[in-house]
Design a protein around this nucleic acid. Structure first.
Lengths: 184, 184
DNA sequence: ACCTGAACACCGTTCAAGT
DNA sequence: ACCTGAACACCGTTCAAGT
């Protein structure tokens, strides 16, 4: 277990995360760190002690959301047939990304980073759904989970609202899936 | 015609653009403006006089590339059948975007801006190809040119190299196109 | 062990003084 | 008409001094 933090340190950390959630929601993931520390009522150095990089703050901030998305993938895989599960999860992914300002950027940002690789966690979760869909023959395109997540992130970042995202996903989906209603 | 610029002003403008091309290629579209002005051997104020915003500098920088892409669309439409023309042009778009660091960001950035809307120019060019493809029945998805460009930008930004971009485009394409080889 | 906040560095932006 | 470059503002980052 991690060495016990002092009570004031723990309190400051929580406060910083709560304030960061507000500030990032308002002003995006590039919001001034000084605004976060000052609104939290702590010195600049305290923010740095707890979160040595902006990335580490964002990761801590979105950690729970990433967990949710991974759990959602497992749940979808358990309760739906492969095609429905994957498609529904992709939609959920972009819904989360559009709701939580900065989530998609953070996942993209941490790709391949030594510690706290959010992209890897998400990709592992998506890989289950993708495998199942490919084995069931509903996804015929040769994509790996990495490309799939990359695609979802791209669509989320490209879309201004959920409607646009949904329509882009529909296109991507029919590109991934075997054609369900072939025409001449 | 525009009021004639003084010769020194003209020279500084050209110098700034040439240096900006280098710096943006090296360090991306967020590169420090101070680096551009100092490398060009002019004062900070001179950069500001010619290009009041970073956006205006980037637009001037990529103007020729945007023209090329528009011209390429016309050419493709004239020389190929609709399906080939659109698909080839999409590939060309991402190739340009991957080669010229900052091009995709700039197009995205200027979307809807009052002056110098690169996205609008590109979209107008793409609309021709898209219309033709839809009328020929090779593109069945209900997309407009705006969504198409958004998609291309997203794919370009999501991909690390041309291979990745090409495979994402392949997926997107089979999502856009009527299925050429229907299966059960 | 942890915090504060002043100090420094960096970059964007403006503008008074020059040519 | 245009340029220079110092001055200012803003933000990230560090660190000496405090508890």
């Amino acid at each position: 277990m991690p060495p016990a933090r002092r009570r004031d340190a723990e309190r400051n950390r929580n406060r910083l995360l709560a304030v960061a959630a507000e500030v990032v929601a308002e002003r995006g993931p590039e919001a001034p760190l000084s605004e976060i520390s000052s609104r939290a009522g702590v010195g600049a150095g305290t923010l740095y002690r707890h979160f040595p990089t902006r990335e580490s703050l964002l990761v801590a901030l979105f950690d729970a959301r990433v967990d949710e998305l991974c759990a959602a993938a497992v749940r979808a895989g358990d309760t739906h047939r492969p095609a429905v599960a994957l498609r529904a999860w992709m939609l959920q992914f972009v819904r989360h990304a559009l709701t939580d300002n900065g989530l998609a950027e953070t996942i993209d940002l941490t790709r391949g980073s030594a510690d706290h690789d959010c992209a890897a966690r998400i990709e592992a979760a998506a890989a289950q759904l993708l495998d199942a869909a490919q084995q069931a023959g509903v996804v015929t395109a040769t994509v790996d989970a990495g490309q799939l997540i990359r695609l979802c992130i791209a669509l989320a970042l490209a879309a201004d609202d959920l409607d646009q995202a949904a329509s882009l996903i529909a296109i991507a989906w029919s590109g991934l899936a075997a054609s369900p209603l072939p025409r001449g």
